[in-house]
Write a protein that binds this DNA or RNA. Structure first.
Lengths: 334, 334
DNA sequence: GGCATCTTCTGCAACGATGTATCGCAGGAA
DNA sequence: TTCCTGCGATACATCGTTGCAGAAGATGCC
């Protein structure tokens, strides 16, 4: 079997507890003793049993990350960064894909998944604030990139509305007047889609351009959704000189459909997205988009969650962090 | 604190072990007793403590997945599928990003990460077969999609060589004679890159086209690597009428560079990739590529690993699975 | 010298589950 | 009646670690 603390203790001629103390950096240990224990550890190749430690301490040093689908480029990159940030503070990340299914979200919040983790990074797609609050246990939870702005929860997000307004203003400055929005309902106002749509409307208003609900095309937030939405607009005879995909996948799907149908991008229709995934830079034409400061989102949310776990952050109300953003002007909408 | 088995036992008026027996589907329990225990569990909202169970049983019901970088589209999609497949058999997947750093790979193999998991899905990028064999513990390990074809290891991969040959033959059939390869060294023969290069060479040979090392452009397997490799070829004055990116990211980067420089794709230069990531379908022009049967790879590798863990697969030698593939002909290389 | 305090180390219990051994009680065979 | 077998349930030890309480010796202070 594996080497245990008992074996180390025997080899070093000290008690079990002394070995434990050495491992946990207990203050009062004679240097000579400490050395003897460390030598024994090295010689036997001892490694602490994390399961036993977890059982005893009640901590797993794992963070849960709940998102809809890891294969979406934005989430893949975010997960990758979160893992790296967590690892720097000695934590691991366990991912749960909800597929936007309510049951899975609920289970992540209070089921076995919760048990395995010391805290949660949560991207709720189905559950509402009250429901979450009701099922929220004692372990810390940080909301990620989503719309639920509620004093009960910590939240790390970006300036969705402001960024969408900036992007829209950029399109308007280029002379675009009929800007289609891909991925929202005309009446939407909550959620990521709603916030970005609000920014769009605010920018139009400021420019004195009337809002036309016919330009708003709802669809699934995937490449094929974006393509289908544009197809729908064109088939309905809706005219537009720009398309604003509420994320890059939507924009790229939309652009693809436009190019297939023989439209010139950006000459006839400008296309812009949101998220600045790696792919946006390498699309043809390259995609104008908003870079959401993902590094900042990842670092801040990990820091906040771990500070909550370790009791270094004690604010009664939810802490709200808004990461900055940057407009990335590229070929698709100069 | 949380409800324990002891609380349930007391509530149901039975012993601790009887509760355990009910939970583990022990055969000889009177239906009435079983019912009483189940009622108590439901009433108290008892949930088994996974950590305690792990400590006692030595199993965590977690699988480790070691790959270079989760933000690479291929790996993101693979990870997503692996998680879903694992979850169907009651396992979770814990991801470790190696960034192709040797230390991280070694640690994943024998460090704390190994301890947390019952088995490993391993994509070695740095370590060699002998090194892996030397550090391999007792827990099952399945190699994933990589080149190490060794009787000591289980391996799930795809027909890399055959697929690359098929793709090359397709390009040749379209009249291409000078096909650049993006992402390999001319002398390479092992590893994913080597296998695909072998397929390329075999197809050329069969068509009676001489192999020209000048057409082989090594680079990092990322979009920007592909772009840089093509830039290098063009700047060196190497002429070619097709570019075969050894994965889709490379091909898309290459295509981007070609389009920027005013080349017509596919009229002047055809472009083809490998992996059929979602993005390939929505690129402009859409990318001809090889679809590696990822669903099959994910399902088979999870099945194999779990069968090893649970003792249902007992072959002494490594089991080798080769998933099928499909040529996806699209606009970039008709 | 006597007492309090600090340093260094130890032993025991506990975290919450499962494995092993065992026990009482039926019912059937001898 | 006695012995045996199988069912249904139990008690106790155990997995490897950490928290708590305390012991023994060294040191400081009056």
């Amino acid at each position: 079997m594996a080497v245990t603390m008992n074996d180390v203790a025997r080899a070093a001629g000290v008690s079990l507890k002394t070995v434990s103390n050495v491992l946990n950096d207990y203050e009062f240990i004679r240097p000579a003793t400490k050395q003897r224990v460390q030598d024994a550890i090295a010689e036997l190749g001892y490694e602490a049993n994390l399961t036993a430690r977890s059982l005893r301490s009640g901590k797993t040093r794992m963070l849960g990350l709940v998102l809809s689908d890891l294969s979406a480029p934005y989430y893949a990159e975010l997960a990758s960064r979160l893992m790296k940030a967590a690892s720097q503070r000695g934590y691991r990340v366990l991912v749960e894909q909800s597929d936007a299914v309510a049951d899975v979200e609920v289970n992540a919040l209070q089921g076995p998944f919760r048990q395995l983790t010391d805290g949660l990074l949560f991207t709720p797609l189905v559950m509402e604030a009250d429901e979450i609050a009701a099922r929220l246990g004692k372990k810390p939870l940080v909301m990620l990139g989503e719309h639920i702005l509620d004093p009960r929860f910590d939240l790390v997000t970006m300036k969705n509305e402001e960024a969408a307004a900036t992007l829209t203003t950029h399109l308007v400055a280029d002379g675009r007047r009929r800007i289609a929005v891909i991925g929202a309902h005309p009446e939407e106002s909550g959620g990521t889609a709603g916030l970005r749509l609000n920014g769009y409307r605010r920018a139009l208003e400021k420019a004195g351009i009337p809002f036309d609900p016919a330009l708003i095309a709802p669809c699934e937030w995937r490449r094929d959704g974006g393509a289908a939405a544009v197809a729908g607009l064109l088939d309905r005879g809706v005219e537009f000189d720009a398309a604003f995909g509420l994320n890059d996948a939507l924009a790229l799907g939309a652009m693809h459909e436009l190019l297939i149908r023989g439209f010139k991008v950006p000459e006839q229709v400008a296309v812009a997205g949101f998220d600045d995934i790696d792919e946006a830079r390498f699309a043809s034409p390259s995609l104008t988009t908003v870079s959401p400061g993902m590094a900042e989102i990842a670092d801040r949310s990990i820091a906040l969650l771990i500070d909550r776990i370790e009791g270094q952050e004690t604010a009664d109300q939810g802490v709200h962090v808004e990461a900055g953003f940057q407009l990335q002007v590229r070929e698709s909408a100069p």
